[in-house]
Amino acid sequence: MHPVAVTAGLTVDIRRKRFAGDGRTPPHTAIENLQFDVPVGQFCCLLGPSGCGKTTLLNIAAGLDSEVDGSVDIHSESTQTRPAVSYMFQTPRLLPWMSVRDNVDIVLAPPARADGRGVKLLERMELGSYLDAYPTRLSGGQRRRVALARAFAIRPALLLLDEPFVSLDQPVGNRLREILLDLWQAQPTTVLFVTHDLNEAIYLGDRILFLSQPPSSVVHDAAVDLPRPRNPDSPVINTFRTGLLDRHGGLLAGAAGSTTDSGSSTP
């Protein structure tokens, strides 16, 4: 696999994102004064309590939601083409009527499809014997691997991930996180990874942004200066976590408080 030429940085400047609400749901402000930059190639984790507008932010970055006061600017060195953005959703969102192979190939442009890029990625993720299987035949972990292959197949300049590994067994989740880092190192790209699990964020990220309760804004910006490769079960991660909570406990209470259901390691 060749390193990607086009990577993109990200500048988020959202003054306000409101949902008008309909008859059943009241209007509410999801995001207010949310500003941060993600430099090219950084693995940035967004951590916050559920319902704090993390998914909303990713939808805006992905271009799915444009009704916002503010902007999410994706900028790359190459100005010719709009940088490619990949999005791995909370559920795998595979097309059940297509084989595993077609689920990846369908998002590729014809030349990329012809060079067998999708199949190579799937084989790298140990799905080589499932190429013609339908997603309904796969386990939850396998489906997420297909979704991950799809996300990397288009060689994204920016990769958005929305709690992609929740509700998985710890070993399966650990394996997927390992695969994600492996792909990210082989195919460098800027990553925005949403999670509510502090251990997962420490294991994966170069940096963690802590978001407040809604309307959300950044309450703390922590660099994770642990060397890679990291071990999800090593005490280093817990030490880092404890240090972070000791220094900023009050500030992070809202953001990191919901990590009791952590998937990567027990506190």
Binding site: A62, G63, L64, V85, Y87, T91, R93, W97, R150
Partner: peptide, 27 residues
Amino acid sequence: RELLDVARVFRVDRRTTFLRFFLPQLY
């Protein structure tokens, strides 16, 4: 709609979106 969002994010062209993402749901 979530599957149609996948097509949008990955910039699948309109024809393919209709034939491979939308229409199979109507079969």
